[in-house]
Computed example of a mutant assay.
Amino acid sequence: MTALTPSLTIVAARLPSPPTSAELLESDVAGATPDWRGIAVPDHVMQRFARRSDAAPLAARPIAGGQIHVLARCPGFGAVLLDAWDGAQQRWRGWLVTPDTSYADACGLVVEERDAPADPRAGLVLCDMPVTLAVADLGACLGVFSQERLQAARWLELHGRANAAPAAPGVIARVALPGDGYALTGTPLSTELGKDGRVAYRQLLRQGLQQLQIAVAPPASDVAAVKLVPAAKQAANANRWLKVVTAVAASVMVVQSAWLFLPKDNAVVGNAEFRNGGSGVETGVRTRVLFRAEATEAEIRTWLQREQLEIVAGPDTLGAFTVLSRDRRKVLPPPGPGNPLAVINP
């Protein structure tokens, strides 16, 4: 128990309301309060400040899979690693994230240096605690996982419980993944009642989720894990999208024709700028997007005009369109009420 930090009392203080059972908490630490004025800030605390500063530019990033976002309704409680967008339910599926790496069990993925930049509030992905959230439930971005790391979280949700190592609270273990990969995780939970503080820790977290009315996602299966992401993309290829294609085909063809007939010295430059064949260089930002299956042409057209965006390509084989903003500082609003977006950068 002494290997687990912070204490369960501190974890309970993050909940929106006090826990329903005081038995979950450790006894108060006896003794006088120390005088902190003469104590230097430890190096590991300074490192956390530096990590938070490094991750600060990620805060306003548009929502997408693989990102870790703080819970908007209670930022101090935790965050969520986004896995996949469920277009039918209009919700994200992901896993609860906390800063408490020492509470990792066999299904806990420890955030490492290779995941940098990552805010220190994102320290442990609890792959056995999948949740579903609306876009409005997501706050600032704390970090971004690679596809390899995202796959590691999926694997731990499905197979982490198979780890038969002895329970050792506070011990971080290295687990081999399929292929040449690995993940830092914890040992299995102890089956002896009261011997493993990580059991009480998860009970506190479940109470917090209930208080915040955050839905617990059903356990993943190999079939569901594979089909969830394509489901959102498949909706973009529904028959309704033939109307959108017809509506934008003419403008796309004009743009593409202009690109084809530009002189070599006025060719497209990367994905960020192109010459207009005349008075200089026009710059802009291109972004691939998927629109909601139920979004109407009028809704999409109105939103494009309001955001000063143009469709310059698409739909591709996944049903995604590429939109262009002339403003290089433009950041697309996250999917949600008021816009027809389903996924940004699918």
Rank of each mutant, 00 (worst) to 15 (best):
171 V>T: 14
179 G>C: 10
199 V>N: 11
143 G>N: 03
151 Q>F: 03
200 A>P: 04
149 R>D: 13
191 T>P: 03
175 V>Q: 14
130 P>M: 06
180 D>E: 10
194 G>W: 02
200 A>G: 13
128 D>K: 11
130 P>C: 09
146 S>I: 09
137 D>F: 07
151 Q>L: 11
140 A>E: 14
142 L>T: 01
122 A>Q: 06
167 A>R: 01
138 L>H: 06
151 Q>Y: 01
146 S>Q: 08
124 L>H: 03
185 T>K: 08
170 G>R: 05
156 L>M: 12
119 D>G: 02
131 V>T: 10
123 G>V: 03
142 L>R: 08
174 R>W: 02
127 C>A: 15
152 A>W: 00
173 A>G: 03
153 A>N: 10
186 G>L: 01
194 G>M: 00
183 A>K: 02
203 Q>R: 11
157 E>L: 02
175 V>I: 09
157 E>Y: 06
183 A>L: 06
129 M>T: 15
195 K>F: 02
121 R>K: 02
164 A>Q: 05
152 A>V: 11
143 G>W: 00
193 L>V: 14
156 L>K: 07
151 Q>V: 10
139 G>M: 02
141 C>F: 04
154 R>D: 14
185 T>R: 06
198 R>F: 07
196 D>T: 08
150 L>Y: 05
166 P>Q: 06
125 V>G: 08
145 F>K: 06
200 A>S: 15
171 V>L: 12
205 L>F: 06
141 C>V: 12
204 L>C: 10
125 V>P: 04
146 S>Y: 05
135 V>W: 00
161 R>V: 14
165 A>F: 02
181 G>L: 05
183 A>R: 04
160 G>I: 03
133 L>V: 13
202 R>E: 13
172 I>F: 07
125 V>K: 03
121 R>Q: 12
124 L>F: 01
132 T>H: 00
134 A>P: 00
197 G>H: 03
138 L>A: 12
186 G>M: 01
125 V>E: 05
195 K>E: 14
122 A>K: 01
186 G>D: 07
202 R>L: 09
141 C>T: 14
119 D>P: 00
203 Q>P: 04
160 G>F: 00
184 L>G: 11
161 R>E: 11
174 R>C: 14
180 D>W: 00
157 E>C: 10
134 A>E: 05
178 P>L: 06
187 T>Y: 06
151 Q>A: 15
195 K>A: 15
194 G>L: 00
184 L>S: 13
169 P>S: 11
131 V>F: 01
191 T>V: 11
201 Y>T: 13
154 R>P: 09
